[in-house]
């Protein structure tokens, strides 16, 4: 396979030096994966095998005891469900607010729009942890602690999403297209929904994956907002479960593996979208 963007790949790649690089990269790749592989493998081990040295990668006598035990001891499936709902709504909100705001800020020029865009970008510099406490007090005052809306409050908008869409709209959607539709008598709402939105599928897909992962891995905010086993997200449930006194490594690994595998699988499926989104964050300045 040669990549047209990289003439160097026309050169014979399987030189000794090239293969040496492959060996190094394979070793590094495996080392990066090793902690996760151990975690998943530990989930299937019997207590004696967990103590064995060297640790086995493939369990000698795989057992489902740990997984069944964890599903019995904790509402893990419920936590997964909570997290899916939370991440799903958060993603929907971020994608729709970014789409509309990015489009409007990119294609309409009212005199105060640059200032609005400036404020949106400026807030993205401030880490969430900085304003978490006042946000918590507001959620508390509204009586939304320990509820899904309270949880969502921190994850409804994303400045980077608005930035991404605005960038895309200004560079890739020609004004002539919008003007032509207007001349034909199309309303602004119709133009946005029927012409602009379908054209933004690419960046919105990347943004959706990014938003979903952000919510799926959220920790500090769900930790302070949720207050009991029924409302925990997966990350919070797991973090508090592992502080228990009586749990053993097998059960811990099983719970962690059950939490890990869906996110790893989802990432592998969505890799291109994800890489596109994250690489976009790297190019923003």
């Amino acid at each position: 396979m040669s990549d047209p963007d990289h003439p160097s790949s026309d050169v014979d790649r399987n030189t000794p030096a090239g293969l040496a690089i492959d060996v190094v990269l394979f070793a590094v790749g495996l080392m990066m994966l090793l902690p996760l592989v151990f975690l998943i493998s530990n989930a299937f081990k019997t207590p004696p095998e967990l103590l064995a040295w060297p640790p086995t990668i493939i369990p000698d006598r795989p057992t489902l005891e740990n997984i069944l035990g964890v599903l019995h001891e904790t509402p893990l499936l419920r936590w997964i469900g909570n997290t899916l709902i939370f991440a799903g709504i958060s993603t929907a909100s971020i994608v729709s607010t970014s789409a509309i705001a990015g489009y409007v800020l990119g294609k309409f020029d009212l005199p105060w729009f640059p200032a609005v865009f400036g404020v949106i970008i400026a807030t993205s510099v401030v880490p969430f942890e900085v304003y978490m406490i006042p946000l918590y007090l507001n959620v508390q005052a509204a009586g939304l602690l320990n509820t899904l809306p309270g949880l969502l409050v921190g994850y409804l908008v994303m400045s980077f999403g608005i930035f991404l869409v605005r960038q895309y709209v200004t560079t890739s959607i020609p004004d002539e297209l919008l003007e032509a539709a207007r001349v034909d008598g199309a309303g602004e709402g119709w133009i946005f929904l029927r012409i602009v939105l379908p054209l933004m599928r690419g960046p919105l897909g990347a943004l959706a994956v990014l938003a979903f992962f952000q919510a799926w891995t959220a920790f500090a905010w769900p930790l302070v907002v949720t207050a009991n086993k029924d409302t925990y997200t997966l990350e919070v449930g797991l973090a508090l479960f592992q502080t228990g006194f009586t749990v053993d490594i097998g059960h811990l690994s099983a719970a962690a593996a059950l939490a890990l595998v869906p996110s790893a699988l989802f990432f592998s499926l969505m890799r291109r979208n994800f890489v596109r989104g994250v690489a976009g964050t790297g190019l923003k300045e």
Partner: peptide
């Protein structure tokens, strides 16, 4: 790329537990 990038995206808590 995938193996090196995966630790960046998997959930923090299970990864820390590993």
């Amino acid at each position: 790329e995938t193996s090196i990038f995966l630790p960046h995206v998997v959930s923090l808590v299970p990864a820390a537990m590993a």
